[in-house]
């Protein structure tokens, strides 16, 4: 598979996996307004995933459309970052995972709007506007939970500490990133590390949360090496089209 296809799949798969996670929370949120919000964020991410995967399929030229790519690939063929496959957990975990992702996504999409690949630039421009709202909400909630009750603070801190080792991968480049940056299609992921850290540290401080210390950073998702959690997620997401490929709805 070409670097170009791999690259587009990475953004599409991350959006898709997070969208699927959030859809599982619909009707389980602590309050009605958040249920509506989670459904909306999920919907935006599904929409973004469709744009990315549709384009990846066209680039690949092997006749796979967005549905084929979403429903008929195994975990090892997915290119999402590990962060988004972390389980939903409690509301604090969902919030912190969302915040870490939204902030990275917002910065990454900003870089992609400069892509020489005009289709990538257009998808990024569209997605970035939506992501700005997602980020605003997840950052608000991070502060409300961290600077909230003793219980919400403890849960938010635990979530931040548990998810922190999955943030490093967001900034780790590999051969695909290097190649795409060289061609002006993509960017060096290292470029968003400092802006991400700066804003995340400020938000965590405002939320009265400790910034987790340096730790071993998990990685491999972008290359198809995933955690166990992705298998369960895909099993649920793919069961219908895999069992009844002719099904239409």
């Amino acid at each position: 598979m070409s670097s170009h296809v791999e690259y587009v799949l990475r953004f599409g798969d991350s959006a898709l996996v997070l969208a699927q996670q959030l859809s599982g929370l619909v009707a389980h949120s602590p309050i009605m307004e958040e249920d509506v919000a989670i459904a909306n964020v999920s919907l935006d991410l599904f929409g973004q995933a469709r744009l990315w995967l549709g384009y990846a399929g066209e680039l690949e030229g092997a006749g796979r459309d967005e549905d084929r790519l979403a429903f008929h690939r195994d975990a090892s063929e997915f290119r999402n970052v590990l962060l988004v496959e972390r389980p939903n957990g409690d509301f604090a975990s969902t919030t912190v995972r969302g915040y870490f992702y939204d902030l990275w996504s917002y910065l990454a999409l900003g870089n992609l709007t400069q892509s020489l690949d005009r289709r990538i630039a257009a998808i990024a421009e569209k997605s970035r506007k939506e992501t700005a709202y997602h980020l605003r909400r997840s950052e608000d909630w991070l502060v409300r939970l961290g600077d909230g009750t003793e219980e919400s603070h403890a849960r938010a801190q635990r979530a931040a500490s548990e998810l922190w080792p999955y943030t490093g991968e967001l900034f780790m480049g590999d051969d695909v990133d290097v190649e795409m940056a060289r061609q002006g299609i993509g960017f060096d992921p290292e470029r968003v590390r400092e802006p991400w850290l700066e804003r995340a540290r400020l938000a965590l401080a405002t939320a009265t949360l400790d910034v987790p210390g340096d730790s071993w950073m998990q990685h491999g998702g972008k290359q198809g090496v995933h955690t166990e959690a992705l298998g369960y997620l895909l099993a649920e997401m793919q069961v219908l089209p895999r069992s009844i490929p002719e099904a239409v709805w």
Binding site: E33, E34, V36, A37, A39, N40, V41, L43, D44, K129, E130, Y133, R136, R137, D140
Partner: peptide, 28 residues
């Protein structure tokens, strides 16, 4: 009341004067 509403383009608001809940098309 919430950044999101019944459609992706709207947010939920409430009037503190008359307590009417309503929807607002958020600028994008």
């Amino acid at each position: 009341m919430a950044h999101f509403g019944s459609t992706p383009c709207k947010a939920l608001y409430r009037c503190d004067a008359c307590l009417e809940p309503f929807e607002y098309v958020k600028p994008i």
